[in-house]
Structures are given as structure tokens and as C-alpha cells.
Amino acid sequence: MSDLSDKFEPDRNGVGIVFFVPTTTTSHTDYTIRWIPQAVENLLHNNDIMTKAELASFLGVARSTVYKTFEDDWSGEVTTKMLAAMCSRFGVPMNRIATEPGRAAARPTRRRTAGVSVRLAG
């Protein structure tokens, strides 16, 4: 009973009352803005950009900026500099290539179709 001593409170007759406090887990909402990997990949492919170095050159930013911003699958945390550069240069709205705060990004999945590996947002 020693582990309950902080929750033990006697009533006026000296009878012990134990209060059980349920442990709750709070759902944590992540307000980070993240890239939508499939949308970024499609946008780059449609503009004949295949590498991070090509993207940096196209946007006129340092390669290190692009490498810090994107993972290998074009996912990652959005920076205002890169978001502004991409939306401006490609002429696309922000919600086409980045998630809204508090919403999860679609994770790219791979599916095989007729012997060909196809990458889809799932």
C-alpha cells in the first residue's frame, strides 16, 4: 500500500479511501508542415528535374538548402524559403505540395503492376 500513499486519504471516521486516478494519454497533434512526397516527385518529374542538385539550380538556391529540406523520397519538413521558392517557380499553390498543419502527409507506397513497380500515394 506504500505505492498508493499519495492517493490515500482517510475519511472523518479514519477509514481509508483510495482514489484511483486513471492514466490518460493525450493525443499529440503535430503542427509541422511536411512535403507531400508523391506530389513533389510528380511536379519535379513533369519539369524534367530528377535530382536535388537540378532542383537547387532550377530554384536558384544553394544545394545544401535542398539537401537539408528533402529526404531521399522527397519527404521532409517544409521550410518557408523552399516552399516560397517552389510555389513561385513552379506556379503551384502551397496545398498541392505540402500538408496543412495538423494533417498527416500521405506516405508513398509501392505496388507492383504487371511486373512494373509503381509508386502511389496511399
Rank of each mutant, 00 (worst) to 15 (best):
M1A: 15
S2P: 06
D3N: 15
D3E: 13
S5M: 02
D6Q: 12
F8V: 05
E9K: 13
P10R: 03
P10I: 04
P10S: 05
D11R: 12
D11F: 09
R12I: 08
N13F: 06
G14F: 03
G14W: 03
V15R: 07
I17P: 01
I17C: 08
F19K: 15
F19S: 12
F19Y: 11
F20K: 11
P22I: 10
P22Y: 09
P22W: 02
T24L: 11
T25N: 06
T26I: 12
S27N: 13
D30G: 04
Y31D: 13
I33F: 00
I33E: 02
R34F: 06
R34Y: 09
W35L: 01
W35N: 02
P37D: 11
Q38F: 07
A39P: 01
V40A: 05
E41M: 14
E41Q: 15
L43F: 12
L43T: 06
L43Q: 03
L44R: 00
H45P: 00
N46C: 09
N47H: 15
I49Y: 02
M50K: 05
E54C: 10
S57N: 15
F58V: 05
F58A: 05
G60A: 05
S64T: 14
T65S: 05
T69M: 01
F70H: 03
E71C: 08
D73C: 01
D73F: 00
W74H: 02
W74E: 00
W74A: 00
S75L: 00
E77Y: 07
E77F: 02
T79Q: 09
K81W: 03
M82V: 06
L83A: 12
L83G: 08
M86W: 03
C87Q: 03
S88C: 11
S88Y: 10
S88L: 11
S88M: 14
R89D: 00
P93V: 06
M94V: 15
N95Q: 14
R96N: 10
A98H: 04
A98I: 07
T99Y: 04
E100S: 15
E100N: 13
G102D: 09
G102K: 03
R103A: 09
R103G: 02
R103L: 07
R103M: 06
R107A: 08
P108D: 08
R110L: 09
R111L: 10
A114M: 11
A114Y: 14
V116H: 09
S117H: 10
S117W: 15
V118L: 06
V118E: 07
R119M: 09
L120R: 13
A121F: 04
A121G: 13
A121N: 14
G122N: 14
G122E: 15
